[in-house]
């Protein structure tokens, strides 16, 4: 059971990676709009959260650790998006 759910997590992570690759390959970012970049980093957040909860097993850890790592991820990605917004023409 456990292995199956780990495999499912892996497949979701691969699908999100494919979406991120497509955003880059199709050149969706870089046209002066926030949309694609927001979408891309939201996907990165989902991906990072899955790694935290299911691979690092923070789902079963004391809440403080879960919040520390998920909070790190959210803060870093939010600051990156903010910087991108500041850099827009």
């Amino acid at each position: 059971m456990r292995t199956l759910s780990l495999t499912r997590v892996w497949m979701i992570l691969l699908a999100i990676t494919a979406a991120t690759y497509w955003i880059g390959e199709a050149g969706l970012t870089g046209h002066g709009s926030m949309g694609p970049v927001l979408a891309m980093f939201s996907l990165a957040f989902a991906k990072g959260l899955l790694v935290c909860l299911d691979f690092l097993e923070l789902r079963h850890a004391p809440a403080l650790w879960r919040w520390l790592v998920a909070g790190w991820l959210a803060l870093v990605l939010a600051l990156i998006v903010l910087a991108y917004w500041i850099g827009l023409p």
Binding site: T20, Y21, I23, G24, T29, G30, V37, M40, F41, L43, A44, K47, G48, V51, C52, F55, L56, V69, L73, V76, L77, I80, Y84
Partner: peptide, 15 residues
């Protein structure tokens, strides 16, 4: 792995 998940879109894709 987690670090690369942030690094890849930031360095390779965001433009």
């Amino acid at each position: 792995d987690l670090l690369w998940i942030v690094l890849f879109p930031l360095v390779y894709v965001m433009r």
